[in-house]
Amino acid sequence: MTPVTVITGGSRGIGAATARRLAHTGHHIALGYRRDHAAADTVVTELRATGVRAIAVPADTRDPDQVAALFDAATELGPISGLVNNAGITSQIGPFTELRLADLRDVVDVNLVGYILCAQQAAHRMTDGAAIVNISSVAATLGGPGEYIHYAAVKAATDALTIGLAKELAPHGIRVNAVAPGIIRTEIHALSGQPDRPERAASRIPLGRPGEPDEVAAAVAWLLGPDASYTTGAILRVGGGL
Rank of each mutant, 00 (worst) to 15 (best):
Y33K: 02
A74F: 13
S11E: 12
P79I: 04
A217P: 00
M126L: 11
L47F: 15
I163Q: 02
A178Q: 00
A59M: 04
H28P: 03
A131N: 11
G144V: 03
L117M: 10
I29G: 03
T186R: 04
T61C: 12
I7M: 05
A201T: 13
P226E: 04
A180G: 08
G208S: 14
V107C: 01
T75D: 09
A217Q: 01
G51P: 08
P181H: 10
H189R: 10
V133R: 02
L161G: 00
D41N: 12
V216P: 01
E168G: 00
Q120D: 05
I7R: 02
V67W: 13
R237H: 15
D41R: 11
V238A: 03
V238H: 13
I188Q: 09
H27A: 08
R34Y: 14
G88P: 07
E46Y: 12
L236W: 14
E98V: 01
R34K: 09
I55L: 15
T232A: 02
A54S: 06
L165I: 00
I80H: 04
A30K: 07
I132Y: 15
L83T: 00
A217H: 03
T18V: 11
L22D: 03
L70N: 08
Q92D: 10
T18A: 11
E76H: 15
A56C: 04
G13Y: 08
L77H: 02
A180E: 07
D159N: 13
A178I: 04
L112C: 03
R35H: 14
L223T: 10
G208A: 13
I205Y: 15
A40K: 06
L236E: 01
M126K: 09
I7N: 01
A130C: 01
A156D: 03
E46H: 10
Q66C: 05
T162I: 07
L22G: 06
T158M: 12
L83W: 12
P3Q: 15
A131T: 13
E199C: 02
P58Q: 00
I93S: 09
L142E: 10
A131K: 12
L207H: 14
T45G: 12
W222I: 04
R105F: 05
V154R: 03
A221S: 15
A39G: 09
T8Y: 15
E212M: 14
E76C: 03
G208H: 14
T50E: 11
A156R: 08
E147Q: 13
T158F: 07
G51M: 03
G164H: 11
A87R: 05
I116G: 01
Q120G: 01
A69T: 05
P210Q: 10
G164P: 13
I235L: 07
L165M: 05
V44A: 06
I205T: 11
P79E: 08
G78K: 09
A19Y: 09
R35C: 04
H37M: 06
E76W: 03
P145G: 02
L191M: 14
A217V: 03
G143N: 05
S136W: 11
A74V: 09
G78C: 03
A19G: 06
G241Q: 13
P145T: 01
C118V: 09
A123D: 02
R21C: 10
A221V: 08
A68F: 12
L161V: 01
W222P: 02
V138A: 11
S229K: 11
P171M: 09
G146A: 02
D128R: 15
T45Y: 12
L77N: 00
L70F: 10
L223Q: 10
V57F: 07
P198C: 02
